[in-house]
């Protein structure tokens, strides 16, 4: 079984993902027997969609500090961050807030 998600990148994040802001993806509904959540999604994106400079996207087990994550237009901090279990049709947005001078 697969889950369809809409992924958006902004604030320069898209540069790491083929310079495309919008991606429609399908990911497996379970990872290692557990339902797919935002943490597993982040690693899925790293392995399947990320084109360059992984250190600008991931740090340790999560996204690099300074990257905002929205789930259906809600800050993921309100949704349990990486533990949020993604559902079919969810829209996930990653925005980098790290800018130059």
């Amino acid at each position: 079984m697969a889950i369809s998600l809409k992924i958006e990148f902004g604030g320069g994040m898209e540069l790491l993902f083929s310079n495309e802001r919008s991606h429609n993806i399908k990911i497996p509904a379970t990872v290692d027997g557990k339902p797919a959540n935002l943490s597993s999604l982040i690693f899925w994106l790293k392995d399947n969609l990320l084109k360059e400079r992984e250190e600008l996207f991931i740090e340790g087990e999560t996204v690099r500090p300074g990257i905002l994550v929205l789930v259906n237009d809600v800050d993921w901090e309100l949704e349990g961050e990486g533990d949020y279990e993604v559902k079919d049709g969810d829209e996930i947005v990653f925005i980098s807030t790290l800018h130059g001078g």
Binding site: G12, L68, S96, L98, G100
Partner: peptide, 29 residues
Amino acid sequence: YEKEIVMYAYFKKLDYFSTECIYSPDAYR
């Protein structure tokens, strides 16, 4: 907070620009 501003700009669909300067290695900052 930068976070608030970026959120505001995102929800208001403001047209703005933000990328790291390609010469950015102002290592210190």
